[in-house]
């Protein structure tokens, strides 16, 4: 059996010359794009920052002779100089509470706007859509003053409560709920089901796709937040891992070994989710566009 027929057996067809050019370019592009991430992981396994910097200029940046987990051991603690265990737990806690709360309150509000009977729903909806235009960056300074006045600074609530409710997610849920046939809602109403009951036992199970989208978008957003937690955390108590990693910079010497290990630590949870829910990730980002 020749090589080409063997390949065909595995679902390959004969590629045209154009397709071969495309495949080769795609391979090169993918290698170039991914290589910084590979360098990061490899560097985090090197013994110290001198080894990292010495290897950076050559192909040795992609290779480590005797990998060590010492860098990780140095940062994975809950106290001391580099309590990245604590920062990681902080980030996870902030993400989980914001996403759980966000899913609940945004979908509830969207449900009332879509199927409730109170007057003024249309007005509320258009105000929400208008609010969507306000960028986070342009409210952070007054928000900081407000949070300080409310006595919330340097805590978890200041990082969670402001981002739970969001016009864009309410709107995503609203769009989805609106597509549900009217008959379903009417039938449930005739049976005497309360509005919350209709929401909880009919709409919540139906809306798992939107729930997934909101979880991914809000989750990524919370995990990667930098500006706001930087402004609002002064101590290790509630500091998330993003702000902690930025702390490696702006010192006389940057300890690349621990900085690299901390970066990998921050990347791993996202990667794990990404591996399992890839399709959902892509659809969420593309879907948010249409919304």
């Amino acid at each position: 059996m020749s090589a080409s027929t063997l390949l065909q057996k595995f679902g390959w067809r004969r590629l045209s010359r154009l397709e071969i050019v495309q495949l080769v370019s795609l391979t090169i592009i993918a290698i170039v794009v991914v290589s910084p991430l590979i360098i990061l992981v490899v560097a985090s396994l090197k013994p110290d920052r001198f080894a990292i910097l010495a290897d950076m200029g050559s192909m040795r940046a992609f290779w480590v002779d005797d990998p060590t987990l010492n860098n990780y051991r140095e940062i994975l603690s809950f106290d001391g100089a580099l309590p990245f265990g604590r920062y990681l737990v902080n980030s996870v806690f902030i993400l989980l509470t914001t996403v759980t709360g966000g899913l609940l309150i945004n979908s509830m509000a969207a449900f009332v706007l879509a199927w409730g009977q109170m007057r003024g729903r249309a007005v509320i909806l258009s105000v929400l859509i208008a609010l969507y235009i306000i960028p986070q960056e342009s409210i952070v300074m007054p928000l900081l003053v407000l949070v300080n006045k409310l006595g919330m600074s340097d805590g978890f609530s200041a990082q969670i409560l402001p981002w739970m409710a969001s016009p864009i997610y309410i709107f995503l849920f609203y769009q989805f709920f609106k597509q549900v046939p009217k008959d379903i809602v009417e039938a449930a109403r005739m049976d005497g089901a309360s509005l919350f009951r209709i929401y909880w036992s009919i709409f919540v199970p139906l809306s798992l796709p939107v729930m997934a989208t909101v979880t991914i978008l809000l989750g990524i957003d919370m995990w990667n937040q930098y500006l706001w937690p930087m402004l609002v955390t002064q101590s290790d108590y509630a500091r998330p891992i993003s702000v902690a990693i930025a702390g490696f910079f702006g010192q006389d010497t940057v300890f690349w070994n621990t900085a690299m290990a901390a970066s990998v630590l921050m990347m791993v949870p996202v990667l794990v989710f990404y591996l399992f829910f890839q399709k959902w990730f892509m659809n969420s980002f593309a879907g948010a566009v249409k919304g």
Partner: peptide
Amino acid sequence: MLMPALVLLAIF
């Protein structure tokens, strides 16, 4: 059901 979201949006 509507208020939690609206109150948070109003405050923050």
